[in-house]
Amino acid sequence: MSVVSTDPEIVLSARGLTKEFRGFAAVSDVDLDVRRGTIHALIGPNGAGKTTCFNLLTKFLQPTRGTITYLGRDITGLPPAEIARLGVIRSFQISAVFPHMTALENVRIALQRRRGESMDFWRSDRVLRSLNGRALELLEDVGLTAFARTPAVEMSYGRKRALEIATTLALDPDMLLLDEPMAGMAHEDVDRIAELVKRISRNRTILMVEHNLSVVASLSDHITVLARGRVLAEGDYATVSKDPRVVEAYIGATHD
């Protein structure tokens, strides 16, 4: 096993990350270093193992081999809720909201977790109203003030994603892992969310899986290209987009 980096600028790091499903290696031997304060993109053709990689890093899947460290601490054995409690919050490919709760309640669920009284079953939920002010501020940040009392299920796709980001920000995470934040979005929404991601990246580290290459080009500081479960290339957009192996992998994938 390779030595884990102790560079304080590296926030999240993976070494030799491997996930095998019945002998098929979805992710094999991936090394990844995400630097503090950057937007790091994970790209690659379909089936490259991006989402699997993501699920491994947040421990929604258990790696077959390899280690993951966060701020120098080995987190390979931690369950997903504990990773979240360390300040690493992930999003999901399909929008992750609580559908039959209002936008306000969605954000409040996240605020409530930090407040630490969520086991209180003998108190009235009126105590949660003290969180409304902060929740409304967060909704305002993503332009959802008018929807505070709308159940999430009735909101448009783009707004659900915005709500998801507001909910994530409620936890004030140090690091965000965004799984295809622009997937399935209308063009106007893409710009809106891209601007939002840019804005929230201040003082935070972001790792995102994204298909939309123009978004990747404009947002990310560093790119890791995956293909067939392995790291194919790394660097900034200019570097990786010129890499012949990357071009080939992408063109090859169009035959799918």
């Binding site: 809720a81 919050i89 992750a96 609580f98 709760m101 977790r113 969520s118 079953f121 003998w122 939920d125």
Partner: peptide, 29 residues
């Protein structure tokens, strides 16, 4: 009735609605 309408009940609702998301927000479901 009180359990259902408590901070605890609100988390239960969230878990029922989207368990993976509740976990990703740091709830030990």
């Amino acid at each position: 009735y009180r359990i259902v309408h408590s901070p605890f009940g609100q988390v239960l609702k969230a878990i029922r609605e989207n368990e993976a998301r509740a976990i990703s927000l740091g709830y030990r479901v």
